[in-house]
């Protein structure tokens, strides 16, 4: 059989990307340069107002707190995911454990968030337990704070961080660690110098799979955020629906996309540099 030519391979993918990624992005970018209609929508006239309105210290503050919250979530998620993935990859019950990582997906995302409301509330299970053991005298306000937003986002993204890490650790040849130890490295040093560089792809994927959705998060701060847990996603939704300022929602979206892209580019630049001896 004749080999298919390159366009045949790339064609469907390119069309998909063009239709469902590039085109919508262009529409959003285009909208940001139009004049807003009084009751939503846009008039046909060109205008830079939406971009001028972006230079607002309030938005800058929201962008900054979004960045902080997303980074905190990423660090927290990765800190939990790495040991978990390692344990799973080394375990005899791999399949069972992997299955357990995926099980929560059987329940709808919103229902899982409501479950967290039941756990973290002032009269929730966590506070009741702490009160029962006498560790606290008054219920602690866990829910509706920035901390609860970061915690629940961590919970949400954990499986996405574990799976790529697991995949790369699973492929790693652990006899290399033994070799390193035979050559005099301590266990910690062997893992740091031999394991980590070899699973770099998995680490990158897991960090990005957390950071990107965290930056664009909307539902979690909306449902369990406090009076100041306002992220860029919420701001965009508000401008689009409540304030009916479509161009501003569009320019904020473009800002978020740029912020995310910049993050990825910087991240890939730093994570691709040569680190240690190449190990084959």
């Amino acid at each position: 059989m004749k080999r298919l030519s390159t366009p045949a391979y790339l064609g469907p993918f390119s069309v998909w990307i063009l239709l469902f990624f590039i085109l919508p992005l262009l529409i959003i970018a285009g909208t940001s340069f139009l004049e807003k209609g009084v009751y939503g929508g846009v008039t046909g006239r060109l205008s830079l107002t939406a971009w001028r309105d972006l230079w607002n210290p309030a938005f800058l503050r929201v962008a900054l707190s979004t960045l902080v919250l997303a980074c905190a979530t990423t660090v927290l998620t990765f800190g939990l995911a790495l040991p978990t993935a390692y344990a799973i990859a080394r375990s005899r019950y791999k399949n069972l454990l992997l299955f357990l990582v995926i099980v929560p997906f059987w329940t709808n995302f919103l229902i899982r968030i409501y479950a967290w409301i039941a756990i973290l509330g002032n009269n929730g299970y966590l506070n009741q337990a702490l009160l029962y053991f006498g560790w606290i005298a008054e219920p602690v306000q866990f829910l509706y704070t920035g901390t609860s937003v970061a915690a629940v986002m961590t919970y949400t993204f954990l499986p996405y961080a574990i799976l790529p890490l697991y995949a790369s650790i699973e492929r790693f040849d652990f006899s290399l660690i033994e070799a390193a130890q035979d050559l005099g490295a301590g266990a910690l040093r062997a893992h740091r110098l031999v394991l980590l560089p070899n699973i770099r792809a998995g680490i990158t994927a897991s960090l990005l799979f957390t950071l990107i959705p965290a930056l664009g998060q909307y539902a979690v701060p909306q449902l369990i955020g406090g009076r100041n847990s306002f992220m860029l996603g919420n701001l965009i939704a508000r401008e689009l629906t409540v304030s009916r300022n479509w161009p501003l929602a569009a320019s904020l979206s473009v800002l978020l996309t740029l912020l995310t892209t910049l993050g990825i580019v910087l991240f890939l630049r730093f994570s691709n540099g040569p680190k240690t001896l190449p190990v084959k």
Partner: peptide, 20 residues
């Protein structure tokens, strides 16, 4: 705003009923 925990137009009923 200093005294409230959050702005809420969706789940205030449930949260009130739960004693939150």
């Amino acid at each position: 705003k200093k005294n409230i925990q959050r702005f809420d137009a969706e789940s205030f009923g449930k949260a009130f009923a739960a004693g939150e």
